[in-house]
């Protein structure tokens, strides 16, 4: 038995990419990752906005989001909903980047409004993005798993897989003995587990990250608040629920998180996870073949990753539109490819 694809990962991107390849493109797919459960902490928020300045990125995101929202919402009600994230820039560099972000996003059809925040000192600015699609954690993933299973996606445990140098894989477990022709590493945990440093693309850098959940707290200024320069994203899915923070960078993560929650007063820590994120050095997503085992690598999509799944599925199935093919080619690191054309903003010091 041979699978066309082995998708490595447990993130919503891995779930949706597997399901799209199997369910839409008719490929045989196995997923190498954890069984889904609502209890593990998130490594990312799955929200369709980015701290990007280039018009092409926003245009591609808008198109991808529209399609993905339609795909996911066809699986059930309320799996993708809209929220208004708040972006806070506090340095000259990020305020400037935010100005370019606003122009690109607004020109692409997004609505942004400046928000008042008396706690911010000059030159800081806070901007609210309106009607941003967000995957509803806990509801959407089981629907994606179910769709994948119906389409024939088989989950295999990671210890039953051997990766080969040519980018294919051998799968041997009590129930399956198979090969996979193409392997795709979809999320940070998969990259960390399956590619050692020598096999990773040089453009990738590991970033220490921490997900922290607090006890129930007073409502935040928005369901998602991103402090660009502090490397902190706060999420509060229900008003008055616990705050989930994803803090990038190893330097004083708890202190940075605490500074963001100053108006709340002391809060109990309810859950905590230290993990590694892989970002690109130029701030743009990466679609490439790894340097070591010739597996396919997806990284740097940030919180938007899941919304690119249908586009990426078409790419791997070989049925991309010309625009999509150009998008993927621009984000590759192949010889002669000018990544400067897609390089984007990176907050300093994280």
């Amino acid at each position: 038995m041979t699978f066309d694809f082995a998708i490595f990962g447990s993130s919503p991107l891995a779930l949706l990419l597997s399901a799209c390849l199997a369910g839409v493109h008719g490929r045989s797919v196995c997923r190498v990752g954890q069984p889904w459960s609502a209890w593990p902490l998130p490594r990312r928020f799955d929200v369709a906005y980015m701290v990007a300045t280039r018009p092409a990125s926003w245009a591609q995101l808008r198109q991808a989001t529209t399609e993905t929202t339609k795909v996911i919402n066809s699986l059930g009600k309320g799996l993708v909903e809209k929220l208004d994230p708040l972006l806070i820039a506090e340095t000259h560099a990020s305020v400037e980047a935010l100005a370019h972000l606003r122009a690109s996003a607004a020109g692409t059809g997004y609505t942004l409004e400046q928000a008042a925040d008396r706690s911010l000192a000059s030159p800081a600015q806070a901007w609210r993005l309106r009607d941003i699609a967000a995957l509803m954690r806990g509801k959407a993933e089981p629907a994606l798993v179910t769709w994948g299973e119906r389409a024939g996606v088989q989950r295999v445990a990671h210890d039953s897989v051997t990766l080969r140098r040519d980018g294919s894989a051998r799968i041997r477990s009590a129930t399956i003995e198979a090969d996979a022709t193409t392997c795709i590493l979809c999320d940070d945990a998969a990259i960390a587990e399956w590619l050692d440093e020598s096999g990773r693309e040089r453009l990738l850098r590991p970033v220490a990250a921490q997900t922290i959940v607090t006890e129930p707290a007073r409502p935040l200024a928005a369901p998602l608040v991103r402090y660009i320069d502090r490397g902190v994203i706060l999420g509060q899915p229900g008003k008055g629920g616990g705050v989930t923070a994803i803090v990038d960078g190893a330097d004083q993560p708890m202190a940075r998180f605490g500074a963001c929650l100053a108006p709340q007063g002391p809060l109990h820590r309810a859950a905590d996870l230290v993990h590694t994120r892989f970002e690109t050095l130029d701030g743009a997503p990466l679609v490439a073949t790894a340097r070591g085992p010739k597996v396919q690598l997806l990284a740097g999509f940030g919180d938007t990753a899941v919304f690119f799944a249908p586009l990426l599925a078409r790419h791997f199935a070989g049925v991309s539109t010309s625009d999509e093919a150009a998008f993927v080619a621009a984000h590759d690191v192949g010889r002669g490819n000018a990544r400067q054309a897609v390089a984007d903003f990176m907050a300093e010091g994280l």
Binding site: M254, P266, H268, R269, A271, D272
Partner: peptide, 17 residues
């Protein structure tokens, strides 16, 4: 590992950017 914590508070320790 994520959830079974023995305590800890999130407080503002005066960190500044």
């Amino acid at each position: 590992a994520e959830r079974a914590l023995t305590g800890g508070m999130i407080t503002d320790t005066g960190w500044k950017l």
